[in-house]
Write a protein that binds this DNA or RNA. Structure first.
Length: 431
RNA sequence: UCCCCGGUAGCUCAAUUGGCAGAGUAGGUGACUGUUAAUCACUUGGUUGUUGGUUCGAGUCCAACCCGGGGAGCCA
């Protein structure tokens, strides 16, 4: 008999099934064992009755340690007393592999302990639900990109220099005294790819050696970076909005059980399906000051400022046209107002902060060269990048979406470390 | 790098003014007629992060260090 997944059991009521998984929990009395089996797709209650089994086998089932790998055969019955509405009336419970005493219990644990046991913590109900949502986010991104005719072009992980100049990079030895760095963005390479294929994207890990210790930071995180040729900041904002709406819609549609496990307020999420609010940096600064939240034009928005701004809106908010001084060298200045750059950040609602940063790139060779000098970067490092402006330069732009921050917001999680299978953080790289 | 908080049983935490180291949970043994983190009884389990100091006496007070958590800056 082939194996049935827990999530499919409702379609097999009245049938004999075989389940394979791990012992999640057990509640015993003299004549019954209630055995909870989890298989990654869900958890199901199985009842074992003493009357239908020889005594030795019944006793043995009462002693199987938690998280042992087990196989259960029995009849799937619709039963309201069972969580999930289906109960397996077991005829046999076989141990595939008996577990040692399992360190993670049903009670609460501290973050230090859980992070040190991440390889086991991942089995927990809540963590499985988060991974389901992460999976849905990544699937939606790829499906939607391909529907839109974008090409997946992967960016290198080893890079010869910084992409943004100032941020901290992880340095690695790269043969014969040469140094390489782990990428902190695939953007510059995507710009090259966009000139070759039109609309492109990359989706992969990026690395930041910033000594940040907050709930929004990882040293290794996944980023989705689309780049479009013949596009300006408006097209960038339109794409960012459409993608996030599609992602939210698919998670709401396909991850209902997971959102329930996480006790996520789905009414909040549903608001992201409406058109996003758009506000310029200058308008935001003006409103901040009007509300007595003092902020001087010209500075970059900090986390508390962002939280304040996003509190004005139900939907994610797109803040655009930042002062050029606080943005990267490659960002194009606004022809209407040279003080600002054509950049946009998308702030998630409910205080989750920036999940997307992007904009229109500088496409003029001369301007880009002077920017590189102004930022005191070495033009040698950017020779290939400047070539893109020498040979058929066109207006283009794109953005970077932080996958973990997006999942964090959708799943309503406190800390991004739970939104990646094996988080890498300041002072923590195990397991 | 800076600011704040913490470190006591496998785990989550208590311990009054400085005065015998304590629960819950997990593990073990047993009871229980359908359990929902099942329940009930009994039970194993300790170099209180490290080093030094004050004291008749330190989990508690002081100093330094180590480890962890939250935040700032920076960013996605």
């Amino acid at each position: 008999m082939s194996r049935t997944r827990v999530k499919d059991l409702l379609n097999h009521t009245g049938e004999d099934v075989t389940l394979k998984g791990w012992l999640y929990n057990r509640r015993s009395s003299k004549k019954f064992h209630f055995v909870l089996l989890r298989d990654g797709s869900g958890i199901v209650q199985c009842i074992v009755t003493k009357a239908e089994m020889d005594e030795e086998a019944f006793e043995a089932i009462g002693k199987i340690p938690y998280e042992s790998a087990i196989e259960i055969r029995g009849k799937a019955n619709a039963d309201e007393r069972s969580p999930g509405g289906v109960e397996i009336h077991a005829s046999a419970v076989d141990v595939i592999s008996e577990a040692e005493e399992y360190p993670i219990s049903k009670q609460e644990h501290g973050p230090d302990f859980l992070l040190s046991h991440r390889h086991l913590w991942l089995r927990s109900k809540k963590q499985v639900a988060i991974m389901h949502i992460r999976n849905e986010v990544l699937k939606t991104i790829r499906d939607d990109m391909h529907e839109r005719g974008f090409h997946c072009i992967d960016a290198p992980v080893f890079t010869p220099n910084s992409c943004e100049g100032t941020s901290t990079l992880f340095e690695v030895d790269y043969f014969d005294d040469e140094k390489a760095y782990l990428t902190q963005s695939g953007q510059l390479y995507m710009e090259a790819a966009a000139m070759a294929l039109g609309d492109v994207y990359c989706l992969g890990p990026t690395f930041r050696a910033e000594k940040s210790k907050t709930r929004r930071h990882l040293t290794e995180f996944w980023m989705f970076e689309p780049e479009m040729a013949f596009a300006g900041i408006d097209e960038v904002m339109d794409l960012a909005e459409a993608m996030l709406q599609k992602i939210a819609a698919n998670v709401l549609e396909n991850c209902q059980a997971d959102l329930e496990v996480l006790e996520r307020d789905t009414d909040q999420l549903r608001k992201a399906l409406a058109p996003f609010s758009r506000i310029s940096y200058s308008e935001a600064v003006e409103r901040l000051n009007d509300e007595g939240h003092a902020f001087e034009w010209g500075g970059d928005l900090g986390a508390p400022d962002e939280t304040k701004i996003s509190s004005w809106f139900d939907t994610p908010v797109m803040v655009h046209r930042y002062p050029e001084a606080v943005k990267a060298f490659y960002m194009k200045r606004d022809p209407q107002d040279s003080r600002v750059a054509l950049g946009v950040d998308v702030l998630a609602p409910e205080g989750y902060g920036e999940i997307i940063g992007g904009g229109q790139r500088e496409d003029c060779l001369q301007t880009l060269m002077s920017r590189i000098h102004e930022h005191e970067l070495d033009p040698e490092d950017f020779a290939w990048y400047l070539d893109l402006r020498r040979y058929g330069s066109v207006p283009h732009g794109g953005f970077g979406l932080g996958v973990e921050r997006t999942v964090c917001w959708l799943a309503g999680i406190e800390h991004v470390r739970e939104c990646i299978p094996f988080p890498r953080m300041l002072y923590r790289i195990y397991p």
